[in-house]
């Protein structure tokens, strides 16, 4: 359905997107997981045609979006990261306006808007100005505005940013349902759980490139069988290095160390060694292979909300 190859975009000296490749099949939810500044929005903007890639190509349903993009735009639903609605209009008026841009009109438009409002439980507040909505309500209308014309390909850029768990669950369910009914979805997020729970395939994106890609299982297998252990205490890095010799250390500083173990017994041994050298350990955390540990291994840091 969508084929992205070697796209690049530079802003001044910032390589926002530095050679990204992926493809998404029909009915699939493809996740772009990465921290702020990774290049997710830039990638989405290039697919939606808002930005022109410096190089590389993007095709949707076999049609290059660089050329005649009119017929593709009709089939495209874009939900921007920033809420893009008219504050001074009501939720319903907003949907009418955005729907009309896609050629909907009359009864068809009104029905589509009502259906969307029903879907996100906003029928009762539909005639209030968006200005008076809560963050979660605005997010829901923002979503509806991108879906009202029933697009085949849905681009969502962090659609759940900063909202309460209920509204988030409702949005995720809608996206799930869209995919089930055959829509193709590209979903960017910096929330690990969202990527884990929602996406069929996940790409880990950082500093403008995709570092790993696959289903949740494939990715966790990448992390191998190793657990990630993080210790904090009153130890010095020199001592620690000795104690941990032979183990793969991911991060080391005075008072904090993170390393990989393939067997649980190793952890006990390590703690014993620390104990014997008079070090007190304050905290031990063990992470089983998960998307989080994959992310950690690939990017070298933890992804926090």
């Amino acid at each position: 359905m969508i084929e992205v190859s070697e796209i690049r975009k530079t802003f001044g000296s910032v390589k926002a997107v530095d050679g990204i490749n992926f493809h998404v099949k029909k009915g699939e939810i493809y996740g772009l997981l990465g921290p702020n500044g990774a290049g997710k929005t830039t990638t989405i903007s290039m697919i939606s045609g808002l930005l022109k890639p410096d190089s590389g190509s993007i095709t949707v349903a076999g049609i290059d979006i660089g050329g005649k993009s009119g017929q593709i735009r009709k089939r495209l639903g874009v939900i921007p990261q920033e809420i893009a609605l008219y504050d001074e209009l009501s939720g319903r008026e907003n949907l009418h306006f955005w729907g009309s841009l896609y050629g909907l009109s009359g009864k068809k438009l009104r029905e589509a808007a009502d259906r969307m409002l029903e879907l996100v439980n906003l029928t009762e507040r539909a005639n209030d100005n968006v200005r008076d909505y809560s963050g979660g309500m605005k997010r829901r209308v923002n979503l509806c505005a991108g879906l009202i014309h029933d697009p085949d390909l849905i681009l969502l850029d962090e659609p759940t940013l900063g909202i309460d768990p209920q509204a988030r669950a409702s949005i995720l369910k809608i996206i799930r349902d869209e995919a089930t009914s055959g829509k193709t979805v590209i979903y960017t997020t910096h929330y690990l759980e969202e990527a884990e729970n929602l996406c069929d395939r996940i790409a880990i994106i950082d500093r403008g490139t995709i570092h790993a890609e696959g289903t949740l299982r494939e990715l966790t297998e990448l992390a191998g069988e190793e657990d990630v252990v993080t210790l904090t205490g009153n130890f010095k890095s020199g001592v620690t290095k000795e104690i941990l010799s032979g183990l793969r250390i991911d991060h080391l500083e005075d008072g904090m160390v993170r390393f990989y173990v393939s067997e649980r017994e190793t952890i006990g041994m390590v703690l014993n060694k620390f104990f014997n050298s008079g070090v007190s350990i304050e905290n031990v955390s063990i992470k089983e292979p998960s998307l989080e540990s994959v992310f950690l291994r690939i990017t070298g840091y933890e992804l926090r909300d």
């Binding site: 735009r73 495209l76 809420i83 893009a84 008219y86 504050d87 841009l101």
Partner: peptide
């Protein structure tokens, strides 16, 4: 600035 222009521009208008 509000992002609505970008949203208009992704619609099938030139």
């Amino acid at each position: 600035g509000a992002g609505t222009l970008q949203r208009i521009l992704v619609a099938p208008l030139r």
